[in-house]
Design a protein around this nucleic acid. Structure first.
Lengths: 335, 335
DNA sequence: AAGACAATAGTTATCGATAACATAGCGGAT
DNA sequence: ATCCGCTATGTTATCGATAACTATTGTCTT
């Protein structure tokens, strides 16, 4: 009594003189009530400052949850920040709430997060990447909710997929560099053991170079996090081994900018002595004194499409299983 | 029957031969059961792959929620990404889940988000900034849950506050620049109408310069989002009006890097002709050819402290109402 | 040996909303 | 006139866990 701070359906029912089932019907926008009743109920709900109890809604029925979970590799990545923004904006506009998680490129951590999430009986879930533990896949199938895998496309999604092919990004960059006359390419990456998507780009790049007759000369993959420092020191290490490289493909733009910093600090001319190209399309890369050659990823659009696809499926509307959001190779002045 | 995919307390109770209340007690780690019972229950819970239904837990009692909401101005900001990471890591380690929102520096959007959040009856909430709508404050007080205001410190928090003073950041930078001999300072910012924290830095900076006898010469505040481009063009506009400025304080590091790009593109020597200083401490800023003079904000630490403070309060442990996480002015080579 | 008390366990009511079913009233078709 | 079927509404059971209470042991005290 004294802890009751919020009005509930019963309060509205009492104030209106109808049963709480009728109130529920009106507020849900279901059918089966007169316009007069509807008006009365809405008026009282407003007056009593009614806030639906989503806990009770989601608990009482197995279809009413408005909770969606999304798990990304790292919250600190600029790219995933934009993905999250796209997801959260779309979801909140559609009346859903967003629960987040990050797994630091570990599918075991992703599984642990998912276990916590399903305890909340969410309406759906968005995961990054196409590789998951067997238990994750099993958990998802048993939960029977929509699942969107974003970021790296797969031809056989668990349910739906939104994104692009990392492998193809690598291929495209390889072909571009070959056309620009580059012949001795290296790669600087990070976290290769677990970042399967970064590895896919490397594989695509490597395949394209090999097919053109100029196989990848060397690679330097740090276990560090893929930031500016890793790019700086990764390039230093790689060049110490292979001074004659004419271009280096970086894991991402942050690392490429680190590479540019190294080149500047050591009097290397870019792109004359060495081409430097990145991946991701972070905004910083486009305002450098020399614009970075990179692949721009439509991050926000991916997040938005994933969220909208998920909700479409929840509402029983039609939605493609696989949505391709193409990336764009943007030639800059560094490669 | 056929939609029942998950084991619940009753299933475990049946399998163990005790009541579900006893099962609940064991799994919650409460008291009132023998070691033998405990072992049996845990074994069956494991065997049945039991996942607690958090919806039911949170719904049935008003203290059992493990949901925490956090609302930041923008998900795309590198700084807030790190804050989120700090929050989410700490919360998930402590057994809580994170629901997010963003309000784009609008306290009305923050209020709208909070209304959705409280419908989930969360355990607590983390907000950014010290300025909220009256309805927000009212909603929070009535909800009776712990609230942490992060990012900008206030002497009278709604409940708890974790962060630092933006005003003092501005003061410190002003005093630093005066010591370095700068006399004609400008400011380039963005979103001033609503970003009260950026405005607080400007106010502090402005106050410090004025107190030293060299009041701020001019400011250029764009309505754009505070990124690299805004920094570039903001500096261009400001210098067109005030060519004789000897230093410019930027809203943040992204904008300052944009300013550096403008200076490089127009043959301005930095810091010779013009000092350029930022705020925030983004990683990029420290690997530029010339390291940016900036204020480093311990973003992850703030997120972590906020989450841990919130949980401490939930557990009835002692926790300071106001936790200061000091920023650090890091002199670089640009100012 | 009786009473006090702790340890262990079970019973009942409850949170708020919704699905599924039941009912009442009314108009139209046969 | 009777039955059908529609609209508007009410009733009951249910989701899973927990708080608050009750009950049964068994041990210790005096």
């Amino acid at each position: 009594m004294d802890r009751k701070t919020k009005a509930n359906l019963t309060d509205i029912a009492r104030a209106t003189g109808v049963s709480k089932m009728t109130v529920s019907r009106v507020l849900r926008g279901a059918t089966g009530f007169s316009d007069e009743t509807k008006a009365k109920v809405l008026r009282e709900a407003e007056r009593l400052d009614y806030v639906p109890n989503r806990l009770a809604q989601a608990f009482g029925s197995d279809t009413a949850s408005t909770l969606v979970g999304i798990c990304v590799p790292r919250l600190t990545s600029g790219l995933f920040g934009h993905v999250l923004e796209g997801v959260d904006r779309a979801l909140s506009r559609l009346g859903y709430q967003t629960m987040i998680g990050s797994h630091n490129h570990s599918i075991a951590e992703e599984e642990a997060w998912l276990r916590q999430l399903v305890a909340w009986r969410p309406a759906g879930v968005i995961l990054s990447g196409r590789v998951h533990t067997a238990a994750t896949v099993d958990l998802l199938r048993r939960a029977g909710m929509p699942v969107v895998e974003i970021w790296d496309l797969t031809t056989s999604p668990i349910d739906m997929a939104v994104g692009f092919s990392h492998f193809d990004c690598g291929v495209e960059m390889g072909q571009f560099l070959i056309r620009k006359g580059r012949r001795k390419a290296g790669f600087v990456g990070a976290l290769s053991r677990s970042d399967v998507m970064g590895t896919a780009r490397l594989d695509g790049f490597s395949a394209a170079m090999a097919r053109a007759g100029f196989p990848l000369v060397d690679r330097e993959v740090l276990l560090d996090s893929p930031g500016f420092y890793a790019g700086y020191y990764g390039l230093e290490t790689l060049l110490a081994r292979q001074p004659s490289l004419d271009v280096v493909y970086f894991h991402n733009d942050e690392m490429a900018i680190g590479g540019l910093a190294y080149a500047a600090a050591h009097g290397l001319s870019v792109p004359g002595d060495l081409g430097i190209v990145g991946w991701g399309g972070m905004e910083a890369a486009s305002v450098l004194p020399r614009r970075l050659t990179t692949t721009v990823v439509p991050t926000t659009a991916i997040g938005k499409a994933a969220a909208e696809g998920l909700v479409a499926r929840l509402k029983g509307e039609h939605c493609e299983d696989i949505v391709v959001i193409p990336t764009r190779l943007v030639p800059g002045e560094t490669g």
